[in-house]
Nucleic acid binder design. Sequence first.
DNA 1: CTGCCTGCAAACTCTTTGCACGAAT
DNA 2: ATTCGTGCAAAGAGTTTGCAGGCAG
Lengths: 153, 153
Amino acid sequence: MSKAPAREKFKSHLATKGLRVTNQRLAIFEAAFAQTDHFTAEELLDHARAIDDSVSRATVYRTLPIMIESALLREVDIGKNLKYYLPNPDNNAQVAQVICLDCDKIFEINAPFMEWYGNSVSSKLGLTPVSQRLQVTAHCITLKQTGVCKHRN
Amino acid sequence: MSKAPAREKFKSHLATKGLRVTNQRLAIFEAAFAQTDHFTAEELLDHARAIDDSVSRATVYRTLPIMIESALLREVDIGKNLKYYLPNPDNNAQVAQVICLDCDKIFEINAPFMEWYGNSVSSKLGLTPVSQRLQVTAHCITLKQTGVCKHRN
DNA sequence: CTGCCTGCAAACTCTTTGCACGAAT
DNA sequence: ATTCGTGCAAAGAGTTTGCAGGCAG
């Protein structure tokens, strides 16, 4: 999904939920969908303020769950007491993360088998799966060999 | 590994690292290894204080990483800004979690394929895997049908 | 004795919330 | 005109840290 259709999807999601289309919510949406990599709530605030300087931190935090619920954004928690977000144009949910501990880069890897695994292991316990997450933390080989992490931005 | 050998392992880990064997550290170890299920730092503090009432919250937080590094404990982060811990008598690292969203129970499931997956996906990126985690969140079927979650303690 | 270890309390980080004002419908 | 949305600042939760005194080796 490219940006313009995504904007319409966001607006219709707001309408469906009886939520108002405000300049702040639109600025936050624009800022989020302009990103090409993972971002934090604080970074999103900065970018949204560049579009509409009235945007507050509170509204960013209140808008993020709306965009996540509409599947426009995915939330990625890698256990750092700091959440990352990224645009989810393909509506993808079966994605694993590989996290480079040297440069903190997060790679997103398609992992469709996660859904199968979730179903399989849940049904044995009398549960219905809601979500899966699979994460691998790793060190950079080239960093160790050459002193430079080749994944660093 | 039962408790007594684990205690020796803890002491020798302390010795190896040049760390001192204090009453507080031992009390925290005893409290942790007496648990049969996941526990939080705060719960560990309570139990450790029942053994030695001089134990402070700070020392619990300072001792947890030591026990984790020695592989006596595993840390389980299910994305709740609150970490869970559990004794790891079998030195197991390839374990997935299934989390019931209705009763918050955490099931630990052996998932040896995680190691293969971590190796496979890391090597393609020029990385050496350090750890894997796989988590499934789910709802209780019997809760939905009967109003009672059969997993609740 | 030396210096690591401790308890205390304050600091810290990220996120959430109460309130009164402001804007979308 | 209503009512939902907003910014601000304070609160909140879990964890970490600086400091002065205490105990292991």
